[in-house]
Amino acid sequence: MSNLFVSRSLDEILFWSRIMKEHSLFLKLGFNCDDTELINEADHFYKLFEAIETKAQNFTMQSDPRQIQQFNIEVHNAASMIWAFKRKILGLIITCKISGNNFPLLVDHTSREAAYFATRLKELNEGKLKPQPAAIIRENVFFLRIMADHAKFIGHLLDPSERKLVEQARDFSHDFDQLLFQAVDLEAMQPQSETVPLIDKLLDENRVSVKSLRDFKKSARDLIEACKIKSIIHPLLADHVFREAERFLQIIDLFEAELTGTNTQSIEDIANHGF
Rank of each mutant, 00 (worst) to 15 (best):
T119L: 14
F103Q: 09
L202I: 04
N58Y: 12
S7M: 08
I73R: 15
A148C: 10
R247Y: 07
L14T: 07
H23E: 00
R18L: 14
L90Y: 01
V196W: 07
V184K: 07
K28W: 02
N125D: 14
L38Y: 02
P160M: 15
K164D: 12
L106P: 00
D34R: 09
T36V: 06
I136S: 00
N140F: 04
P133I: 05
A148N: 05
Q192I: 05
Q67I: 07
R66S: 07
N72D: 07
M61P: 04
K86H: 09
I94N: 12
S63D: 02
I252N: 00
F85M: 06
I267C: 05
D200G: 11
R138E: 04
N58D: 14
K28D: 02
I82D: 01
E205Y: 07
L202G: 01
L165C: 07
N263A: 08
L4Q: 14
H240M: 07
E162R: 10
L90P: 01
T36H: 14
S193Y: 02
H234N: 13
H174R: 14
G91P: 00
S99D: 11
A271G: 10
A114I: 05
E205M: 15
I94L: 13
K55Y: 05
D149E: 15
N140E: 09
S219K: 12
A169E: 03
K122I: 12
K218I: 11
K164L: 15
I73A: 12
A220R: 08
P160T: 15
Q57M: 12
V166H: 02
G30K: 00
K128S: 09
I251C: 04
Q132A: 13
I252W: 00
D269Y: 08
D108Y: 15
L198R: 09
A148F: 03
D185H: 12
F275H: 12
L25M: 14
A226Q: 08
E225H: 13
T262C: 07
Q178L: 13
I267G: 06
E187N: 15
D204Y: 08
D34Q: 08
V141Q: 02
W83N: 08
L213F: 03
K21E: 00
D200T: 10
G30N: 04
S231P: 00
